[in-house]
Amino acid sequence: MEKPLNNKAWFLVLPVFVLVAFSALLPLMTVVNYAFQDTFGNNQFFWAGTDWFEKLLHSDRFGEALIRQVLFSGLILAIEVPLGIAVALCMPRKGLWVPVCLVLMALPLLIPWNVVGTIWQIFGRVDIGLLGHVLYSLGIDYNYTQDPLSAWITVVVMDVWHWTSLVALLCYAGLQSIPDAFYQAARIDGASRWSVFRHIQLPKMDRVLLIAVLLRFMDSFMIYTEPFVVTGGGPGNSTTFLSIDLVKLAIGQFDLGPAAAMSLIYFLIILLMSWVFYTVMTKQDEQDQNRKTGGGE
């Protein structure tokens, strides 16, 4: 079907374009400006070309932060997506417990990020924190301020605690949209529990899973506040993710040029990865679209 063309619509969205240009595009262009120049303050700029980019891409510091970041996002997706699906499958489909579950699940999502960080910072402390002290008393060597592994576990578990609900709620919405007839037909066909999950529930969740994966990837890749509050990027540099590193570079060292270059690369990585996720996960749909011959649903 041809979509009707109406050029008047452009005038109506023009104000938004202007607004976005001022609020997003101009600051971004400033960053681009910094990325290709060198400055010592007092408004003197020297052309630096792609120097900053080359230096950054060859620096160990950036490479290590990037590896940490990829590892962190990978872990987050590997834990939160299956866990979220499992939680959604365990939630009641109807009845009195549905609203109770929904509210309980939504609670972590409503807590401000720095508060989440503070909660876990205190929770994990060996001297006064419930978790930290209990583990310490049990003789487990847990100390997130000194041991990198403890710090990583704390940061990952905190994110799982904070964001698994989002994945679970999205999946739950997907599951709720499956008509009863599908489950009844599966029973008639003698399908096992696994078959029901594999052939009915998972396919019906693929759209919401795409959204869940994208959101969790982007968010975890940009994570700053919570690990900053809990570990400050330490011990050493062990939990210094890209955003923490970027802030250190830009505000701590005031290296505006390299920081701008890093911002751009950081931004492009997120854009690229999101595009890859999206393309891979919607590839199936496109194939179906191309083959589809008749009306269908």
Partner: peptide
């Protein structure tokens, strides 16, 4: 017993 439902039930994938 086999049953055909009001809305087509097929395994999408």
């Amino acid at each position: 017993i086999a049953q055909v439902f009001q809305f087509p039930v097929i395994y999408d994938t």
